[in-house]
Amino acid sequence: MTNRFDLPDLGLGVGLRTAHFSHLLDQPAPVGWFELVSENFMDNAGRPLHVAETLRRDHPLVLHGVSMSIGSTDPLDLEYLRGLKRLADRLEVAWMGDHVCWTGVQGRNGHDLYPMPYTDESLRWIVERIKAVQDLLERPLVLENPSTYLQFRSDTIAEADFIAAMAEEADCALLLDVNNVYVTCRNHGLDPHAYIDVLPLDRVVQIHIAGHTDNDTHCVDTHDHPVRDEVWALYARTMAATGGTSTLLEWDDHIPPFEDLVAEVEKARAFLPEAS
């Protein structure tokens, strides 16, 4: 299955992190592509941008932000969106996106990916916001399912149904984070396979894999471990269903040497369609 946006399968990639800058400037990187946290490069004309522009010569880049706050009921931040577009144009990124979440309200920013209330009202709200942002950015938005640690009593729609409806109505693309699916479902007693079955996979242009921490009472999306077997299982199922989708390993804390990062993402190769 190819995605309906005709965005390419970039193969296996990793998140670009400061800890690896020197390594990546010194030697070729044996990965297919890099994902950049948008905000780490938007207001920075120093070393991060230099590294990104250097890597851009040989690798596709993708922007993945954490501050769009697409679900917030505050006005859209035009300064942010214009800065994001400038960066995307400068780096000629393959695509760009953020999360199905809100990060602040009434002018205050909590700098976290807070869960949406899943209601008809919030669905209409986020759909209109996505359409407006896509018009401004002049490209489809690629939105990721979040890890959530609570559900609102007022919710009337299941998260996966909300995201599926949002994607269809706003005509946006999806980034399916299979680790987030696992964490969210574990935290709320849901079936992760059923969650993925609900999503319109022809809109999925990218997959995230990552490690999480299981605190027994709940799981946290810590990005500080190798990918766990239960997440690989979800990944395998998803890849079988999509026929191959750009896959990215996220690792944000206790970051290992670059070679170890490559070795971890290479494990995904066993689940790629051509391997089976």
């Binding site: 009921t73 602040g104 209409r124 709200w125 007022s154």
Partner: peptide, 13 residues
């Protein structure tokens, strides 16, 4: 407008 969504976001933050 999305008044109920706003209210949820305000109390949570």
């Amino acid at each position: 407008r999305a008044p109920r969504t706003t209210q949820t976001q305000v109390w949570m933050l």
